[in-house]
Nucleic acid binder design. Sequence first.
RNA 1: GGUGAGGUGGCUGAGUGGUCGAAAGCAGCGCUUUGCUAAAGCGCCGUAGUCCAAAAGGCUACCGAGGGUUCGAAUCCCUCCCUCACCGCCA
Length: 425
Amino acid sequence: MLDIRLIREQPDFVKGRLATRGGEDAARIDQLLEADVERRKNETALQHLNGNRKRLSKEIGGKRSRGEASEELETQVREIGDQIAVLNEQTVASEEKQRDLLLHIPNLPHAAAPIGRDAADNPVVRSWGEKPVFDGAVLDHMAIGERLRLFDLERAAKLSGSGFICFTGAGAKLERALIQFMLDLHSREHGYLEMSPPFLVRRDCMVGTTQLPKFEEDMYGMEENQMFLAPTAEVPVTNFHREEILPAAELPKKFVAYTPCFRREAGSAGRETRGIIRVHQFDKVELVKITTPETSYEEHEALTANAERVLQLLGLHYRVIELCTGDLGFGSAKTYDIEVWSPGQNAYLEVSSCSNFEDFQARRMNVRFKDAEGKNRFCHTLNGSGLALPRLFAALIEAGQQADGSVKLPAAIQPYFGGAEIRPE
RNA sequence: GGUGAGGUGGCUGAGUGGUCGAAAGCAGCGCUUUGCUAAAGCGCCGUAGUCCAAAAGGCUACCGAGGGUUCGAAUCCCUCCCUCACCGCCA
């Protein structure tokens, strides 16, 4: 969430930055400022009453210990107590109102963010490799998967409904190989600490990384005890240090984790739903960093490069785009998307989203560090997929398809897969 | 799931109704003594919110969380969470 002081002191600046996102958020700022005035008015009044009660109660204590009468004072304090009860309710209500407004206002885009309305305005930052050329007809991953029996969507639907994948045989093995390949790459060569976190998280964590309260309909919740299925490893991993003050010397923290990701994808029925491109459960290897504000943008570039490295080692053509202000995610100040080329669909597929949240998540999670002067300051948090699996899987088998119906695998994945190709049985 | 014991400042650990935001020790910072180190002595040393134009300073809140009793709660009562031990169940 944003710093209420920044909003109070520079409301026009905040409104201006929010307006570049294109929503109604700027209008909420005035409501928020009203709520802030109300809250502080209540708090100040409450503090005076509490102060009076505290002082008079001590007097009563003194009188009693000296054996003097104190009934008058006690009546007086009882009245103050009644006033406090009333005012306390108002104060709590105004605090909650302010916090609720604050939780629904998105982050400010980075000062240099490209201004734009939607995905069509996202500039391409760079690209790597070439689109592969094929002699004959190009199959998409669905056709290849069917021929080689790599996954079974019909039977997966029997188990869990539409939008679920069941990988089978060589497909299951390739899925596993890719996960392990990426975990090894990031932990051994890029210096990330490998984590294997819980997949179920508490509500507070979901609020901390901004999935809640605004996007609850996209999440799978376990009603009984308010647990949620993590939609990304970002949630458990970024929250790992919630409510902590970290020594500056330990920053940046770099984590890599594999988890399945659970998403309702409410409202996206019929859109990109064919095949394995958009599903309710998918595997992902995620990169997370906790940094000081001073280094977060260079760490963001490095994190994006670490994610790109996966595609380079697999020899897959891709491009990197920067999200414009209108397309930027709720909590992000700056985001690069990495899109891999899918020959079968003749399109780029998003396989990674690398974001710098600055202190937006840290403020919600209360993650701070002690700086050189001994002051506690909020950390910056970043994350990016490194990478998301079903789409990477699809691009990989499409790019490796051979005229004889087999799929050739790039050298980097062969030791993990235990072979150089996938052949029809 | 059951029973029992606990949760106090960076750490250890006192505190069972009033002057307690909280003793003491350790760690940390500063000063003094000393040829250096060590040791000793003295002082400082939590977080957040709020008031004031700001600084200085003041005030309020915080002893796992939330409620309750009371003129007054770290302290008494209730609920919940977490930790530890044992039992049950179990991959």
